[in-house]
Write a protein that binds this DNA or RNA. Structure first.
Lengths: 195, 195
DNA sequence: CAAAGTACATATTCTATCATTTGTAACTTT
DNA sequence: AAAGTTACAAATGATAGAATATGTACTTTG
């Protein structure tokens, strides 16, 4: 018998499968429960409600998907190159998700319209990492001496077109990577101390 | 009798009134025709179809609304200040429309999701004006010597968050103007030749 | 014959009703 | 008592038939 122990993790996996199969809009608790061979009510023992479950699914997905940013933090490159790599990788990852994992990306896009705790935390995490790189750059006299948090926010905003899901339809343009590089050149040379 | 001569202009005005009254989604040709005391079929003598009429309405609205940019082009300021003013005014105008003329703004936002000739031309017009300011800056050795068109596009993209309708909901934040200034500082100092 | 109206086919949108989904509480089983 | 099921009320979503809107061809009017 393929009898699971029903737990948070198996519910998360079933939910993710359902989202991939039916898309985020058509996914319902009944189908998720059916896949686990339990009644839908059983899920309420583990998650307060549907929104809570979807938050958890997205949180797990975000952590997995943007792990590729962590090695960049450990790179031994000049801060300006590190920040460039970081944003290139952030945007590349978003593009890759939109193209190869469209349902999970849509799930994320839908959630990003509302106000989700998981997404706020993810944004904070991204800004923290950028701030840390900028901090290094300020210490090594590579970047102008301004509030690194504010700089991180400005850089994040200025590159929105390349990582915000509202613009996902533009990301198919083969020129998109060049466009990002052009914007990064402008921003980075605005931050650098020239000599 | 309030008998009009039915012409393109009076139809445009009636259409704009209808959009303001009912919103772009609920506006239909029958109501527009009713307001003009003609049958809806009469409109087809002047506009090929509904999309054609709405294009024309938007074109007229865009021309009227963004006239405030023209005086800036004639300003006798340093190119870096001129470009700053231009983008501040562009974004300020968008914010003002979103707040005080929500139906016409929504009409514009809806159109901007599709591919409208009027909007493409408007974008070209904006980019042309920005390019011209940048051109001046390059000649006066205030800006780095790069393709002014590409620079204009980069500046436009980097400020999307402040003028693209997808972000209109963020424009209520009282901090929005400071955020724009921070991004403009970054971009402009990236373009300027420092000494 | 130019300009608008009428009549009509097709496409779209509304609306009323029905089915599903969500969330809760009381019940069963081990 | 822990882990699940069953049964149900309220919210949400699907559906089909009615109503309205769009676009075209033909008719009327000055």
């Amino acid at each position: 018998m393929n009898r699971f122990v029903l737990d948070k993790e198996s519910i998360l996996q079933a939910a993710e499968n359902a989202i991939r199969r039916y898309g985020p809009c058509k996914t319902n608790l009944t189908d998720i429960a059916k896949a686990l061979s339990v009644s839908h009510a059983a899920i309420y023992r583990y998650y307060a409600d549907k929104a809570d479950l979807l938050e958890a699914v997205t949180e797990r997905w975000l952590a997995r998907t943007f792990r590729s940013l962590d090695p960049i933090m450990r790179e031994n490159a000049r801060p300006e190159e590190k920040l460039r790599h970081y944003l290139q990788e952030l945007c590349r990852t978003k593009r890759a998700c939109a193209a190869t994992d469209p349902e999970m990306f849509e799930n994320y896009a839908v959630l990003s319209e509302g106000s989700s705790r998981a997404l706020k935390e993810h944004l904070h995490h991204i800004l923290n990492q950028m701030e840390s790189i900028i901090q290094q750059g300020i210490h090594s006299k590579a970047f102008i001496d301004q509030d690194p948090r504010q700089l991180a926010i400005s850089v994040f905003i200025a590159t929105s077109r390349f990582h915000h899901p509202a613009f996902a339809s533009e990301w198919q343009n083969p020129d998109i990577e060049n466009r990002l590089d052009a914007v990064l050149n402008l921003i980075l040379s605005g931050m650098e101390i020239r000599n």
